[in-house]
C-alpha cells in the first residue's frame, strides 16, 4: 500500500468543519436542557401544616436548620423533595444499547484505522 497523502483542505471547509463541531457540542449540551430532559426525577410529597415532628427532625437537627435560617415551611420543601428510583426498563434498555453500540463502533473503527497507521509507520520504511 502506498503512503497515504491527505488532500489539502480548503480554508473555507476548515471553518465549516469547526462550525459543525461547535454546533454539535452546543446541541448536545443545550438540547436536553431545552427539552426539559435535564430535570432530575424529584418530586415533593406535600405535608399540610408541617411541624418538625412530622418531618422527623431531631432537636439537634432542628437547631441546625434554624442556624441555617430555614423555618419549618422552608425545610419542608427541602426535606419532602425526594428522588424516585423506580427503574424505567425501556429507558434503561435504550441507554444500554446506545452505550454498548457506541463502544463497539468506537473500538472496531479505531482498530481499522490503527492498522493503517502501524502499517505505514513500520512496514514501509
Amino acid at each position: 500500500m502506498a503512503r497515504y497523502n491527505p488532500p489539502e483542505q480548503p480554508a473555507i471547509l476548515q471553518v465549516f468543519d469547526i462550525a459543525c463541531l461547535v454546533g454539535a457540542i452546543f446541541l448536545a449540551l443545550w438540547f436536553p436542557l431545552y427539552m426539559g430532559w435535564a430535570g432530575v426525577s424529584k418530586s415533593i410529597t406535600k405535608i399540610d401544616n408541617p411541624t418538625w415532628e412530622l418531618l422527623h427532625q431531631t432537636p439537634a437537627q432542628v437547631e441546625q436548620w434554624t442556624k441555617l435560617g430555614k423555618d419549618v415551611s422552608a425545610a419542608h420543601d427541602i426535606i419532602q423533595n425526594r428522588y424516585n428510583y423506580t427503574i424505567d426498563w425501556t429507558q434503561l434498555l435504550i441507554m444500554v444499547v446506545v452505550l454498548v453500540g457506541y463502544f463497539i463502533f468506537l473500538f472496531r473503527a479505531s482498530e481499522r484505522e490503527y492498522r493503517d497507521v502501524i502499517d505505514e509507520k513500520f512496514n514501509q520504511k
Binding site: P6, D119, K121
Partner: peptide, 28 residues
C-alpha cells in the same frame, strides 16, 4: 435522558470523524 443524549452525540461525531474527517489526517 442526559446520559443517552450525550452518548448519541459522541456516536454522531465519531461517525463524522471516521467516514469524513479522517481523510485529512496523515497516517503514519
Amino acid at each position: 435522558a442526559q446520559l443517552t443524549a450525550m452518548v448519541v452525540f459522541y456516536l454522531v461525531v465519531s461517525i463524522w470523524f471516521h467516514f469524513y474527517r479522517y481523510q485529512y489526517v496523515r497516517r503514519g
